[in-house]
Design a protein around this nucleic acid. Sequence first.
DNA 1: GCATAGATCTTTTTT
DNA 2: AGATCTATGC
Length: 765
Amino acid sequence: MTQSDLLTDSQSEQFLADLNDPQRLAVLHGDGPLLILAGAGSGKTRVITFRIAHLLAHGVHPRQILAVTFTNKAAGEMKARVRELTGAAADSVWVSTFHSFAARFLRFEYQAAGLPQDFSIYDDGDSKGIIKRLIAEMNLPARTFPLGTVKGKISDAKDRMLSPAAFANLAHDDYMRRIAEVYRVYQERLKDAGAVDFDDLIVTTVRTLEDDEAVRARWQQRFTHVLVDEYQDTNLAQVRLIKHLAEPESNLCVVGDDDQSIYAWRGADIRNILEFEKSYPNATVIRLEQNYRSRPNILEAAHAVVSANINRHPKKLWTAKPPGEQITCILTTDDWSEAEMVLSRIRLLCERESLTGADCVILYRTNAQSRVFEEACRRHATPYVLVGGTKFYQRGEIKDALAYMQLTINGRDVAAWRRIINKPLRGIGDASQKKLEEARRADSRPFAEFLADTEAVTAVAGKRVALPTKRFAKLIDDLKEARETMNLADWCRHLVTTVNLKSAWEGDDPNTVATRMENLDELAAAMAEYEMTHETPSLSGFLEQAALVTDIDMYDVQTDAITLMTLHAAKGLEFPVVFICGLEEGLFPLSRSMEKPEALEEERRLFYVGATRAKERLFLTYARTRQRFGPMASMKSRFIDEIPPEFLDVDNLIPSADLEPGGLGYDAPARNWRSSEVRPASRSARSVSRTGSEAGAGQREREMQRSMMAQTIQAGAVVFHPKFGEGEVVSVRGAGDSTTCEIAFRGGFSKTLMVRFAPLKILRQ
DNA sequence: GCATAGATCTTTTTT
DNA sequence: AGATCTATGC
C-alpha cells in the first residue's frame, strides 16, 4: 500500500467540513465501543464510510478492519463508497454480510469447526426437506407440527445459541420436547450430510470461536476495528460473533435505529441495541437526529405513527428542508383501481414534475400484492422492476443442476441426493430412497461410493435398483472427473447434457421446457462470469455465492422503470416518490400481528421505515375490497388515522353511497374528508423542487441512471435476437443481473430471456 | 414405481 | 386462486 492510497490530513479535514457535529464526533471517535443511534436518512452510511476512511488515514491497516452488514448489496455499496474516499486500500477492508463472513470463516477453520472443507450450505427449502422427513419418521401429526412452525422454533433456538440439549432442558411441555427431539436429530442429519443451514453458519462460527482458543486468538488479532450496520436487526448469535471478533480492544462501532427494527420475527432482538450500553459500560453514544432525506411533512407523519408505540426510546428527527407537499391518501374501492390510481398518479408526476418512473417506488406489505401492480403496468405498457418473488437460484431446474454439482464435491449431501436421485426418472422410488438413505448413513461412505457397491445396495433395497444406482454413482464420478478438464461454464453445460436433465420434464409444456433450458444456459453464463470476476474461482465458491445471494442484492435503480417491492426490501433505500399501498386493517397491519402488541409495534416500525424512504412525496393507498382467498373487505388501516389530519390530503374515490365496511366502533371519519372531485387541479401540478446539497446528489444519481439506461432494456423497446429475430419487449422483470424480459417476437411467439445473457440488440427504445 | 386427480394449504416479512 | 401435497389406481 502506498501513501497515495490513504487520505492525507488535509483531504480528511475537507471531508469533515461536510459533516454536522454529531456526525463528525462519530467519525473521529477514538478507541473503545461506540453506539451510533442513527435515525432514518441521517447520513448513517456516510458516517460509517468516513469513519473507515478516517481509520485508514490514521494508520489502521485495511486488513484489520471488519465491516458487517445484513445484505450483500449494503456491503457492496459500503465498499464502493470507501473506495471513492480512499482508493485501492478499500479493497483490503473486509466488508461482508454476517452470513458470507461466517461462510468464509468456516472455509478457513473447517477443521476446528468439525466440518468437511466442502461443506454444503442449506437454504430454507433444503432444511425444510430434512425436517419434513423427520416429522414423518417420528410419526408426529403434521397438523399439530406444521413444518414452518417446527423450522421456526429450531431457528429461534439457534438464534439464541441454544444447543439441542439446552433447548430440551428449557422445554417444559411435551410439545416442545418433541420439537427439541426433531432439532436434535436434524442437527445429526446436517452433520452427517456435511451441511450447515443459514443459522448454523453463524452459530458454528461462534461455537468455534468460543471453543478453540487458538482460532479465537488468531481472529481477534486479525481485526482491530469492527463496524456493524443495522445493529437493531442482530440476534444473539450475531451479537456474540461480533463481540468475540472485536475483543480484546472492543473497538466496536455499531450503527442502528430501534425505530427501524423490523426483523424480530426472524430472531432479531431489539434489546441488543437498547442495551448496548449495558454490555459496554464505557461505550460512547452518539445520536444522529438531523434528517437529510425527507420533507418535514413526511417525517411528521412517520413520526406520528411510530410514536404510537409504547416500547420505544422517545426521539424525533428534524430537517432543515421546507415543508413540501402534503401526504396524499388515496381511498379506492378495490385493489384493481388502487393499482390504476397509483399508476395514473405516477404518470401525472412524470408529465408535470420532470420525474421519471425510476423516481417512484411502490411498496406493499406482502409479495402477493405485487400481482395487481404488475398487471396494471403491463396494461399500460409501463416499465417496472419487481424486486423479490421467484429468485433465479431458487428455480427448480437451477436447484437441480446445483444439486448435481454439490454432490460432486460433498458426496454426503443428502438434500442434494434426494433432489436428483430420481430426476430424471431412474426407477428408484420413494421407498428405495428411504432405505438407501438410511443404510448409507449407517455406512458413512459418500453416496456415490455406497451406491456403486452392488452388494450393499441389493441387501438394502433389492436387486432391481442396484443397476440404476450403480449408473448414478458412475454419473457422479464421471462428472467429478470431467470437472478437472474443463472450466466451470463448460462443465455446467456438459453436466446438463450428460445428466440429460431435459428428459426429466418430458410431457411438460414445451414452452416451459424451453424456458428451463434457457435458464440452465444462463446458469452456465453466470458461472462463466463468476470465473472471470474472481481471482481464485472454485466450484464451492460459486455454490456458496449462489446460496447467499438474494434479489435485493442485485437491485439497481435503472431505466425509467417503476420499482415494486415489499416494505422489508426497501430498508436502506430512498426514492423521491413513495407509494405505500394496501393500508388496510388485516393487511397492514397484518392480521396476525394485531393480536400481539409487540408484533403490532413492529408493523408500525415497518410503516416508519416505508414512509422515511420518501424524499419528496409520500402517497398512502387504501382499497376497500381486495382479492385475498376470494374477495374480502377491510377497514382503513389505523396507521392512516394515527397521522394528524393537517399532514394529509385525502383523495376519496369511493362513491359516498358506499360506506366503509364494518364502520362500527371504528373511528374513520371518511365523511370529513374532501373528495377528489372538488380539488383544484393545480395542486398536483405544483412542481417538486430540489434544494441545497440534495439537488446535486439527485442530479448525479440521475446521470448515473441515464448512463446505465444505454445497457438496459425497457418495455416497448424493439430488439433483435440472432436466433429469434425482431421483437418487442412486453415487460421487464427481476433486478440487476437477474433481470429478465418478455419479448413478443415478430414470428408470433414470445420468450422470456435474461437481459444479461441474451444476445439482444436494441433497435429502438 | 409412477401418474393422476383430488385435497389441502397458503400469503408476512428473508440471510 | 394457485401451488403443493396426498391418496389412489394402474
